[in-house]
Amino acid sequence: MSLYSHILTQILITVVSVSGVFVLTGMTGMFSLGQAAFMAIGAYTSGILVTKLAMPIIVAWPAAVLLAVLVGLIVGLPTVRLRRDYISLVTLGFGEAITALLNRATTITGGASGLTGIPKRTTLLIAFVSAAAVVTLISFFKSSKYGRQCIAVRSDELAAKSMGINVPRVKMIAFLISVAVTAYGGCLYAFYTAYVDPTLFGWQRSAEWIIMVFFGGVNSLTGSILSTFVLSGLPEVLRFLQSYRAIIYAVLVLLVINFRPSGMLGEWELTPKHIKRLFKRPKGARAQEVD
């Protein structure tokens, strides 16, 4: 596989996870600092089911996503009724707990030396189709009744309740969707790199995803995807930036927060209408010339 298709595959897998974070953080205003732990659940469960129990992928991946959602339900249940800070604190603790568990349960997970021997099945095509499918689902979600309710909850919880919105329920739905999507990203990741270890899923990764969402535009899925490409693509292309990656991200986001708080694209979304218009424009321009 060439370098560029390698980079592209990794970016597309990140797009899947960032789309999940977009639902939770961009739309609903909740911050999960243990989101990468759900990616770990997806990666490890699917990897273990396939390598140790010889399950076919078509069963193992959905099983992994389902397990992550069940765990998400347990983590979310005590927190969705409380103020936003709790879900961040609880997910952060959850991330640490999962890392400890992965390090410790050596016989199943391979411990600190990681889980090896996962078959390499994620191709560029699979990554692309997955990313496209997830982005389509999420954009449908954004314009749905739950999407609107998520944005209402982010904007003003109290007013949302007064309009009959069941806030804990909406928060839970957003959380579980993001968990499912992130866990799926974990499946893609494990079957791409063929190897996972506990250090890959710390809070730094969750923080990176949140940074990508905010850099692109709080309320714009298009922006989140674009910034995923820019922020994770740039250091790959310009290798000498690699070790400064975290610092560059942080400085960029601090600049955005201070000077353009709605992110690069704000609320702008690329819709099928825009794409149509893009192809029509030359025609219109010609018509004007004739006039």
């Binding site: 911050f31 936003r84 961040s88 923080a207 949140i210 991200y249 942080a250 601090l254």
Partner: peptide
């Protein structure tokens, strides 16, 4: 505040 503090931590 969340974003800022997470970003600072990363920095």
């Amino acid at each position: 505040f969340f974003v800022s503090s997470i970003t600072l931590g990363t920095l």
